[in-house]
């Protein structure tokens, strides 16, 4: 029985699995090229133009330019994540492709490695497709943007989560997809939408706290701030110096000093069970 931490029996045959997935991707290219194009446009309009009307500028940078790298980063992680979970799962469970593959000289480790290599490759392809769209809108600066595709495999770290669950799938057949990576990506989305430091008077108030146990605190509290962003205290590491609690931030109308509150439900849902989506409430 192989030990959990034993070295995997990998070989160069992993590239055969990668090649198989690439062949299918090319065979169905007309379906595969559509989502990254639409995704780029959708995020640009929804977040860039939508939320952007409230935020306008951050440190002198137009908001839509500010989120453009986030759109890329999310695409990278989402495409790798979905390829290595949904895509791989369908191939493994419904198509039984893995069963067919391991009847050949390929080992199960080769198959998993090949799937992960492909997940990362797919992210690169996504970015390559999205870059021209973003370029058309003038929201990225060349030539530095061209450095993003080579950096993608590193950023596609979500794949690595999948590895853990893969071991589960293949060894114990726990057909359960964990939502942890989804939270992670949603957190990243918000983390990228809002800057780490903000100047009072023109940018979001940054709150930390815990919905249920201790009240969130505000930093750089500003009556004119358009947003309150509540993040997980453990993740933020910001020294609490304000006195804004959860009610202050959004739910008590007479004390409300901001227009909107954005909850990072990605982090919160682990504690509260709230659906992992970010939302804007007044």
């Amino acid at each position: 029985m192989p030990h959990l931490f034993s070295l995997p029996g990998l070989s160069r045959r992993a590239w055969k699995v990668w090649h198989r997935n690439l062949t299918v991707f090319i065979r169905t290219w007309h379906v595969n090229f559509f989502p990254p194009l639409v995704e780029a446009l959708l995020y640009l309009f929804a977040i860039g133009m939508g939320i952007g009307t409230y935020v306008k500028e951050i440190d002198g940078i137009p908001y839509v330019n500010f989120i453009a790298p986030a759109i890329l980063a999310i695409a990278v992680m989402n495409s790798a994540f979905f390829e290595c979970t949904y895509g791989s799962y369908v191939r493994m469970y419904y198509q039984k492709s893995f069963d067919a593959m391991i009847a050949t000289p390929l080992s199960i480790e080769d198959v998993i490695a090949g799937e992960m290599l492909w997940g990362a490759t797919r992210s690169v392809i996504y970015v390559i497709i999205m870059l021209p769209v973003l370029a058309v809108f003038g929201v990225i600066s060349f030539p530095f943007a061209l450095l993003s595709p080579p950096r993608v495999p590193g950023r596609a770290d979500v794949c690595r989560y999948s590895d853990v669950f893969y071991r589960d799938f293949t060894r114990h057949r726990h057909a359960k997809l964990s939502l942890v990576p989804v939270h992670h990506t949603d957190g990243t989305l918000l983390g990228n939408i809002f800057p780490a430091h903000t100047a009072p008077g023109q940018s979001p108030v940054f709150c930390t706290g815990h919905l249920t146990s201790h009240p969130p605190r505000c930093h750089h509290a500003d009556v004119h701030a358009p947003f309150v962003f509540i993040d997980d205290p453990a993740a933020s590491g910001v020294d609490p110096d304000g006195n804004c609690d959860f009610l202050y931030c959004g739910n008590k109308p007479d004390e409300k000093k901001t227009d909107r509150v954005i909850f990072n439900y990605g982090s919160f849902s682990a504690h509260t069970g709230i659906h992992p989506q970010f939302s804007v409430s007044s």
Binding site: R20, V24, R27, Q95, K96, S97, D99, A100, A103
Partner: peptide
């Protein structure tokens, strides 16, 4: 194999 596991993508 007992179960048909042809690759439906091809």
């Amino acid at each position: 194999p007992q179960e048909t596991n042809l690759d439906p993508d091809f």
